[in-house]
């Protein structure tokens, strides 16, 4: 590949997505460069989660093109698998495997998908658990951990696959307020290390300090995208202004 550096890591061209007759995404055009940190915000039901779930094919788009690091997402299973190896995901409800210990949660996909040996995958799992600052929880089960700890484990689990991109789907929305910062801290560290991130979140402080670009969505459309300063201080669209007034009013 000669154009490795100029080619965007994620390319969405005129993407539509329907759930039955409801149109969840309308004509989405989006390019994300390597190392970029994108925050997506918007009212609930605006298609934010659907957008990032299309990127790793948890949802299948109905029209348009999605190309991840040169691989176009179609029905081809090998291509979907290849994309999923490059794209990590962190969910709102953590989605740890309840019947496995923490360290097993981090090892299972390494062993099955990347065919890493048991010893190697355990080593890597412990390294990432240390990075999210909970190595001492390795042999516990998910339910024994607090929500914030579980979400940090979920981030470590995604990192164990050494992805190019990580998608965050409202990672702090299910957390008690006192646990939000421990998760955001981990995400800020990741951002500093140059990870390509797309984050659906309502944490506007995080968005302002970390994002390269903020995307505002409403009714399945990208209404506005801008750098944080411009986005918060000088929003162009009326809908963006109304949304910001609502969430920043307190």
């Amino acid at each position: 590949m000669t154009d490795d550096n100029s080619r965007p890591l994620i390319q969405m061209v005129k993407v539509d997505k329907f759930f039955g007759s409801f149109q969840a995404l309308r004509n989405i055009d989006l390019e994300v460069q390597k190392g970029e940190r994108i925050v997506i915000c918007g009212p609930s039901g605006s298609g934010k989660s659907t957008l990032i779930r299309c990127i790793n094919r948890l949802e299948k788009h109905n029209a348009g093109e999605i190309i991840i690091d040169g691989i176009e997402l179609t029905d081809k299973v090998e291509d979907i698998d290849a994309v999923r190896r490059e794209v990590g995901m962190v969910f709102q409800n953590f989605n740890l495997f309840p019947h496995m210990t923490i360290v097993k949660n981090l090892m299972i996909a390494q062993q099955l998908v990347r065919k890493t040996s048991k010893d190697e995958s355990r080593k890597l799992a412990m390294r990432y658990l240390e990075r999210v600052k909970i190595p001492e929880q390795a042999d516990k089960y998910p339910i024994q951990l607090s929500g914030g700890q579980q979400q940090r484990v979920a981030i470590a689990r995604a990192l164990c696959m050494e992805p190019e991109i990580i998608l965050f789907d409202e990672p702090t929305s299910a957390l008690d307020p006192e646990m939000i910062n421990e998760v955001l801290d981990v995400m800020v560290d990741l951002a500093k290390e140059g990870m390509t991130m797309i984050c659906v979140t309502h944490e506007m402080g995080f968005a302002r300090s970390v994002a390269d670009r903020i995307i505002f969505m409403d009714e399945g459309e990208i209404v506005e995208q801008a750098e944080p300063a411009a986005f918060f201080d000088n929003p162009k669209s009326e809908r963006t202004r109304a949304f910001l007034d609502q969430i920043l009013s307190h």
């Binding site: 790793n56 948890l58 698998d81 999923r84 190896r85 794209v87 990590g88 995901m89 969910f91 409800n93 953590f94 989605n95 740890l96 495997f97 309840p98 299972i108 996909a109 099955l112 998908v113 979920a154 689990r157 995604a158 696959m161």
Partner: peptide
């Protein structure tokens, strides 16, 4: 929980692996 299954698929596990593990 559908979340467990989604997480497994997002990690790249195949449908068969997801079923078994």
């Amino acid at each position: 929980k559908p979340g467990s299954i989604e997480a497994a698929r997002a990690l790249g596990m195949s449908p068969l692996q997801t079923f078994i593990y």
